[in-house]
């Protein structure tokens, strides 16, 4: 069970959080984005094995979003950043 260091609340247990995907940059404005770029933004993921940057929300806590770098093999948490 992960122990996630919320940058605001400190270490808290996994069930308090929800995973929110890889950080992605939203292209825009809509009219100037190609289908391929939009599909890339919506669907394509690097899905790293090893150090993985990922967004989390402390849903059942302070409600804040933040970015973790977590090893997806060992689950070791390498860093937690405030946005």
């Amino acid at each position: 069970m992960l122990l996630i260091p919320c940058p605001w609340c400190g270490p808290r247990a996994e069930p308090e959080f929800s995973y929110g995907g890889e950080p992605v940059i939203r292209p825009g404005p809509a009219e100037s984005v190609t289908d391929a770029d939009w599909a890339d933004y919506l669907y394509m993921r690097s899905n790293e094995k090893g150090a993985h940057r990922e967004n989390w929300c402390h849903t059942n806590g302070c409600g804040q979003w933040f970015t973790l770098t977590r090893d997806t093999v060992t689950h070791a948490i390498l860093s937690a950043e405030k946005p």
């Binding site: 094995k49 093999v73 689950h75």
Partner: peptide
């Protein structure tokens, strides 16, 4: 699923 990415 365990709802976060994992290769573990």
């Amino acid at each position: 699923l365990d709802l976060y990415p994992s290769y573990a």
